[in-house]
Nucleic acid binder design. Structure first.
Lengths: 382, 382
DNA sequence: CCAGGGAGTGGGAGCGCTCTCAGCGTTGCC
DNA sequence: GGCAACGCTGAGAGCGCTCCCACTCCCTGG
């Protein structure tokens, strides 16, 4: 027991009990209430006293105990970030990290922490449910929800404001005005990609879709169809957002329609797999077959052979938006009741062809879902 | 508003005040103390009462208020994960996510939450410092520290146990027994890579290093030199862990030593850049020049042309280890004093050529740093 | 010169929980 | 049959903080 530091006499032991507001007040010769005022901004405290308290805080190295504060204010200054299915591509793409960065930046600007929770099995759902219900966070950000996912319901039941990342796909979700989400304009992006291919003069444009139980995959396919309403169904093959799956889909496409001259792959990863299959099949890119991807994942798109023309989405911005929306929502919730929102507003489908909000809008007091824009990044593959 | 469940009569208002232990106790006809016992495992409570309480908990949908609990137990069941410099490659590689997953799994198994904090500027350092000192978490995991980083000192001052990800590089860090870290065996991995190249019969083996102010880059270079102690200095070029940087370094190497027949790139991303330069220079891989990368990032290594032979490290396992070490450390801290550790143990350099611990060891009551193994993954490039 | 403010301050009541300790009913043993 | 011992339960004291409210000054206006 060498390193054991000599136990300090009484009170104020270094590692043990940290200074309390009480001790600060005592040292400054004021009441706890006044010390509290100073610590929380110091409004309505005379300059002289305020300085005394500040000095005491400084000397004692006082830091407020948040648990105690939370107990009475009922504010945690923390937001849960819940990620369902961490086994998915979330963990092979840099997506996740960028999302997190966006969220983190926005949240910490508002002095909030993020509590990260990953959900894999049933047991995890329960854990998260308990946590949300436990009032440990002021809101939740929900990611990559499965089809009918229990998470939103859990969040709702806990009375917590929440925002979803990615358009939820189950029936009824669309018309659920409580379900605020942020998604990128997958459909519009796909239109951009396919439009570009068509503008290049390509006539047999195929697409490799993502797994069709995910809305992002669905929306991208819809975008493809928007441009090619009478397209040949044999030019559509389903992949799974992985390079492997993209390669397989490409091979299938080639077998079905050897004469195809363009491919829109719904992700860069799938495009990279397709590129290889194309090369192995002796097709030149872009001369024989033009290829466009989706996502613009730097480490993939810029380094394939040839570099990939792709659709870019601003992931970090999406994260930032989610956080901002949540913050707004919480505000709206707090001040609910008063604002005389014209209750008329038909619950218009936010997915009608073009319209996407460029900033958080407002419905009855609360913010509505947001779709962030996408744009085409031209490289060599198309 | 169809699905809206009927609002319960009085008390237990839906969003407002949640049930307390008090109300559970009342409903079950017991005291708060007994209710508390049941909620916390129910040891020493008669079966009949215990069931009554459980029933009340169920009916009321009671969930303990953690803030209140923390206030008295001084346990947060939360760990901070601090990431310095989120602008780095952390956010383009899938590393970060995998690390997080490992940490998350281990932590949630021990019923702990992770609070994610990103540090970018001075202001952030202060924010994190306050947070750690504020006693909101029971420990901290520190990532990608800058050279002499204030973070460990902050953590130490706050009295919090912490574990660092990646070998810290500043002077004195090595001998600081409080500084527990987890790193992968960069040096050994590099030896594996270069050894493989040599075994292939290559004689002019170059290396593209990472930025030499990072220990991982340094260690990988050391591994290269272990195998090639008398190597030609002109065969070493510094990159920056990006594809671009790798390409530039490759071009430089080619200019200096056109006859080189192998390259060990200290990251897959750099290797992918090098591959392109090699191709553009008319060199065939692996026939003319064999290439080995490092990291085994699936989305890169498996999809370059040709697929990359590389050194694999188990990132998720590293995360898991960090968490486990932290948990152990906390235990050690709590139970300090008693265990009669032979205070002898010389502070042996854990970086002597071969030896790495395969599991958390123990020093004077606390766990020591751990180096996780790496292995070669053979694909087509070498 | 005194009532009537307003500003600044302190006292004290909790927030919801855990934990110690005393009290009580049972049982076992002499 | 009496007493010690044991097991279970409840009362109550805080954990550190915020916030309401009462109180004291001191300044102003009548």
């Amino acid at each position: 027991m060498p390193e054991q530091p000599p136990r300090p006499t009484v009170e104020a032991d270094p590692a043990g009990s940290r200074p309390t507001l009480e001790s600060v007040a005592e040292r400054a010769g004021v009441s706890r209430a006044t010390a509290s005022r100073v610590v929380n901004g110091g409004a309505g405290v005379r300059e002289a006293l305020r300085r005394k308290v500040e000095k005491a805080v400084e000397e004692l190295g006082y830091v407020p105990n948040l648990a105690a504060r939370t107990l009475v204010t009922r504010r945690n200054h923390a937001v849960a970030v819940v990620v369902a299915e961490p086994g998915s591509r979330l963990f092979s793409d840099p997506f996740f990290a960028q999302h997190l960065r966006g969220i983190g930046r926005e949240l910490s600007a508002a002095d909030n922490q993020m509590v990260l929770m990953m959900v894999e099995d049933q047991h995890d759902y329960e854990r998260v449910g308990r946590y949300l219900a436990g009032g440990h966070v002021d809101g939740a950000l929900l990611f990559s929800l499965h089809q009918p996912d229990p998470l939103p319901e859990m969040a709702r039941r806990s009375g917590l404001p929440f925002v979803v990342g990615g358009r939820p796909g189950w029936p009824g979700a669309e018309s659920d005005r409580d379900l605020v989400y942020v998604d990128s304009d997958n459909r519009g992006g796909a239109r951009l990609a396919v439009g570009h291919l068509r503008a290049l003069g390509r006539t047999a444009i195929a697409t490799i879709t993502g797994p069709l139980d995910q809305t992002s995959a669905l929306d991208r396919l819809d975008g493809y169809r928007d441009v090619l309403p009478d397209g040949d169904p044999a030019l559509v093959a389903e992949g799974d957002f992985t390079p492997d799956g993209g390669g397989r889909a490409m091979a299938e496409l080639l077998a079905r329609r050897p004469g195809l001259d363009a491919v829109f792959a719904a992700s860069d990863a799938m495009a990279s797999g397709a590129l290889r299959v194309l090369r192995d099949a002796g097709r030149r890119v872009p001369e024989d077959v033009a290829v466009v991807g989706f996502d613009d994942v730097e480490s993939i798109a810029a380094w394939t052979e040839p570099p990939l023309t792709t659709v870019r989405q601003d992931i970090e911005e999406m994260g930032r938006l989610m956080a901002r929306l949540l913050l707004l929502r919480r505000l709206a919730e707090a001040g609910a009741g008063a604002p005389g929102g014209t209750a008329a507003s038909t619950p218009a489908d936010p997915f009608a062809p073009g319209p996407f909000a460029s900033g958080p809008g407002r419905r009855t007091g609360g913010p509505t879902s947001v779709i962030t824009p996408t744009r085409l990044v031209r490289r060599a593959s198309a």
